[in-house]
């Protein structure tokens, strides 16, 4: 009940942020050079369609009414039409979301679980040669441009060794159902997931190393050792439990960065997700799709932040509900 109230309170706080994002979107398109109707309808669109777009967005009305019209459209879930395919943007995006979720989600889980474990192990021996090496390595890992790492993996595993497919989500002539299909997708996933999670692994190792070593220096850990808890329990019950708090926060906040990495990765591997969609939209100057994708990404990140908040509240009794 208290958690629900807290959730509603946080949700309420999200509204101005959502509004702000929508306004940015609106302002950008009006500040951009060129005619707004062309940006929305596409260059060389036939006059009839152009007029239709002008009507939809009320482009002949004063600005504030245009904003009103725009928000009205958004509230109905209308993100406009792609001028490449003339299909509703919302539908195009919705179609691509599962693939992105599959890729980003797998990479996120892999990177965070592995990262937290490696970081925690390093925190047990701070300042050791191993610790310094791993720290340096993790910094180097997240300094790699993700798209370049993808290319290098393709070069090694697909071009040279020919072990794994280099692009797409399924083989052209592969099975479309059953265990064979799953295996096929899994094979295609290995390289993109590897590149995306490698970058993030570095980040999570550092985060978890810092966070766990900080909790290991806390007096309650000394108490636990004095009580006689074996080191495994000290680690899991006292150190990790408390270290999870900052880790969870950062995980939630950096989802936006993870998604941008996903876009670049999808581009390299022709993964049929949102990122690939954005890339295609950029190439064909399909403004409505780019704007729609930005909005959806923003709302996703907000939702993630909200869920993080709830998770944090559940983990830390000190949060005032």
């Amino acid at each position: 009940m208290r958690l629900l109230r807290y959730f509603l309170f946080r949700l309420l706080q999200m509204f101005p942020i959502a509004l702000f994002i929508v306004v940015i979107n609106f302002a950008l398109i009006h500040m951009a050079p060129g005619d707004v109707s062309i940006l929305l309808a596409g260059e060389g669109a036939d006059p009839q369609y152009m007029e239709e777009v002008r009507q939809r967005y009320g482009l002949d009305l004063p600005l504030y009414q245009q904003l009103g019209a725009y928000i009205g459209q958004l509230l109905q879930g209308d993100l406009g039409l792609s001028f490449r395919t003339r299909e509703p943007v919302i539908g195009i995006i919705a179609e691509r979301i599962p693939a992105t979720l599959l890729l980003a989600g797998t990479a996120l889980v892999l990177a965070s679980v592995l990262g937290v474990i490696i970081g925690a192990v390093m925190a047990r021996r701070p300042g050791s040669a191993m610790d310094t090496a791993v720290t340096t390595l993790s910094i180097s890992l997240f300094s790699i441009p993700v798209f370049w790492l993808g290319l290098m993996l393709i070069l090694l595993f697909a071009v040279t060794l020919r072990w794994l497919p280099s692009s797409g989500m399924v083989s052209i002539a592969g099975p479309r159902e059953g265990i064979g299909y799953i295996l096929d997708v899994a094979m295609h996933m290995i390289l993109p997931v590897l590149s995306l999670s490698a970058i993030w692994l570095g980040q999570y190792v550092r985060l978890s190393r810092a966070s766990v070593s900080e909790t290991l220096a806390e007096p309650y850990v000394t108490t636990a050792r004095a009580i006689g808890f074996p080191e495994r329990r000290v680690m899991s019950r006292f150190a990790l439990r408390n270290a999870m708090l900052p880790i969870v926060t950062v995980l939630g906040l950096e989802l936006g960065l993870l998604l941008s990495g996903a876009v670049l990765t999808e581009t390299v591997f022709s993964w049929p997700g949102l990122g690939r969609l954005i890339y295609e939209a950029i190439l064909s100057r399909d403004t409505p799709v780019i704007m729609g994708a930005f909005l959806i990404m923003s709302f996703t990140v907000m939702l993630a932040a909200l869920l993080t908040d709830l998770l944090y509240a559940a983990l830390d009794p000190r949060v005032r509900l």
Binding site: I290, A293, S298
Partner: peptide
């Protein structure tokens, strides 16, 4: 602080991408 919070929640890469795509 509100403004900082908002920016923290915006996926900045996409915003930059949108700006560059729109403005050239």
């Amino acid at each position: 602080s509100r403004v900082f919070d908002i920016f923290l929640l915006i996926p900045t890469f996409f915003l930059i991408l949108l700006i560059v795509a729109l403005f050239g």
